[in-house]
Design a protein around this nucleic acid. Structure first.
Lengths: 196, 196
DNA sequence: AGGATCTGACAACAGTTGTAGTCAACCGAG
DNA sequence: CTCGGTTGACTACAACTGTTGTCAGATCCT
């Protein structure tokens, strides 16, 4: 019975809190040091917790990495859904979606790196086939009007790759361009993809 | 004086031969097991040489990885140059270039993975900023006719990302499409990128 | 106050990594 | 045949990894 309270909070509360700290630390490391720097010990050091609490919330290092990725993925998904909802025209939909995504990853590049780079670099994610981008690509593909099944899929894959690459280049500073211009260009990419 | 001959060959010959074996083993591992599986020991096992000979030709694990990457990069560059030379029209240039690249990475997917994936996944390459894709992107950018400097750069980065993603999806089997259709689609991407 | 529960620091395990060094065996030129 | 360059198997080291276990002490309910 963990209903018993401790230091004002219940056990489950503190457990969830620690889990949150671990995920936050994981995001921090995965988004800066990269996959190699995101070890169980490093995460614990960063979260100021000991390994015991790591295995209290996660069975594996893998589980932590997956949790971090899915956390950010869900955030991105919600941002996109909210941005697209109530946008009347396809153009405004594209514009809002791109703008929301840019806001997300520019305000916090760690999230951008986790979302775009981590699934390519971390075995824990590649092994599970945990790419959200293909999922997004499939969503995009469904919106396309021209072509048959495979055609739409190829277009979607290409579009997602183009956007990722532009974002990544923007993130690491190798593409020096104003934020507005970035958004405008990405919108053009999205809209251009459907005009075969 | 290494002019002295040994078992029919000079020392420098054997040294170069061993270096070649190590690079070949590196390509093999980097293109199949990925970055994590490409350790000094694994490379040596694969090349049937001992660590001593590794450090005879390379100062670091990093140097080996860089050598492998640059080796493949040079091969790709030459294939592209040869494909584009003597192609009269922009359309035939694009077609030849795409076809050459597809041949390279389909005949030997290891090379494709090294060229497209390794620079994203291996710290030894990301740390040195060793992406050849930006270089290719710059080349592509120079061929574009529309827009100012930044515009061309953005288009080029996007195009390279689109092509990479399509190739990668084709490589790992998640994009099931005939080779001819792949080529045709990529050509369309290349040509479409310049029609703002 | 007593006793159950929770906490945190730390040690232990077996494994891998990069890198360097040792040593017996071999080989061909003089 | 002897001597020095060459080879390869092997060991050594310190640092790290994931994971599990131990144990003294703090914390709170009854």
């Amino acid at each position: 019975m963990p209903g018993r309270t401790w230091a004002g909070t219940t056990l489950d509360d503190r457990k969830a809190l620690r889990r949150g700290q671990l995920v936050a630390a994981g995001l921090d490391l995965l988004g800066t040091e990269g996959s190699a720097g995101t070890s169980v010990r490093a995460v614990c050091r960063h979260a100021k917790l000991t390994e015991r609490y790591f295995y209290e919330s996660f069975a594996d290092r893998e589980e932590l990495v997956a949790a971090v990725y899915e956390h950010i993925g869900e955030e991105a998904r919600q941002a996109l859904v909210a941005a697209v909802r109530d946008a009347p025209t396809p153009v405004s939909r594209a514009e809002n979606a791109v703008r929301a995504f840019v806001e997300l990853i520019v305000d916090d590049p760690r999230k951008g790196r986790v979302l775009l780079l981590a699934p390519l670099t971390d075995p824990a994610l590649t092994r599970r086939g945990l790419h959200l981008l293909p999922v997004f690509a499939a969503l995009v593909g469904d919106q396309l009007s021209h072509g048959d099944e495979t055609e739409r899929r190829m277009v979607a894959v290409g579009l997602v790759g183009a956007l990722s690459n532009v974002f990544i280049a923007y993130l690491d500073g190798s593409l020096k361009v104003s934020r507005e211009r970035l958004v405008a260009h990405c919108v053009k990419l999205v809209l251009g993809a459907d005009s075969h």
